[in-house]
């Protein structure tokens, strides 16, 4: 039992939300490609705390957290990509992107698929993770990504197509 379940009447407190959703936010950041998912999740909760009093709906906190995690991860990955580009232009050896996972924990059979996910354009990867890991609706995904539901549909469809092609190429090799 967690205390959160005891005091779950009414609007959840910040601590309730932390207890219930911190691990999920770390995982979301990791799945989206953050090199330090804990840092992203902690920053998201800190920002949520600033925002708590202004959230109109009691259940708006989690969507807000998801959106912040997506945003922060996007910015972080962009920053890393630019840093790698600069290093490469300067003739420095490229830094291997840290996937944030303990590879040995991931079954061999998932490796090709996950590698293909990692190669997807950022928006497509976000749409897939939010859809197939968090099982969110198109509306919820759109809110998290800051795009329209139609755009979510497009990103998801393209991502699945790209994954299919990528896996087909892998099996042909």
């Amino acid at each position: 039992m967690t205390e959160a379940s005891v005091v779950s009447t009414g609007r959840p407190s910040f601590a309730d939300l932390f207890a219930a959703h911190y691990a999920a936010m770390v995982r979301l950041a990791g799945l989206l490609g953050a090199d330090d998912p804990e840092d992203i999740a902690q920053e998201a909760f800190a920002r949520l705390h600033q925002k708590m009093g202004r959230l109109r709906e009691a259940d708006a906190a989690v969507p807000y957290l998801r959106a912040i995690v997506c945003n922060l991860t996007r910015n972080r990955v962009r920053h890393l990509r630019l840093a790698r580009l600069r290093r490469s232009e300067a003739g420095e050896p490229a830094v291997t992107q840290h996937s944030g996972e303990q590879a040995f924990l991931v079954a061999e059979r998932h490796r090709d698929l996950l590698a293909a996910v990692d190669r997807l354009p950022r928006r497509q990867r976000e749409a897939l993770v939010l859809r197939y890991w968090l099982e969110l609706s198109e509306r919820e995904i759109a809110d998290a990504m800051g795009v329209t539901p139609g755009s979510v549909k497009t990103h998801t469809s393209r991502a699945l197509g790209a994954l299919g092609r990528s896996l087909q190429e892998s099996s042909d090799d």
């Binding site: 691990a23 995982r27 990791g30 924990l105 998932h110 993770v129 197939y132």
Partner: peptide, 8 residues
Amino acid sequence: LRARARSY
């Protein structure tokens, strides 16, 4: 994705 998520 679930398998990878568990690794964090």
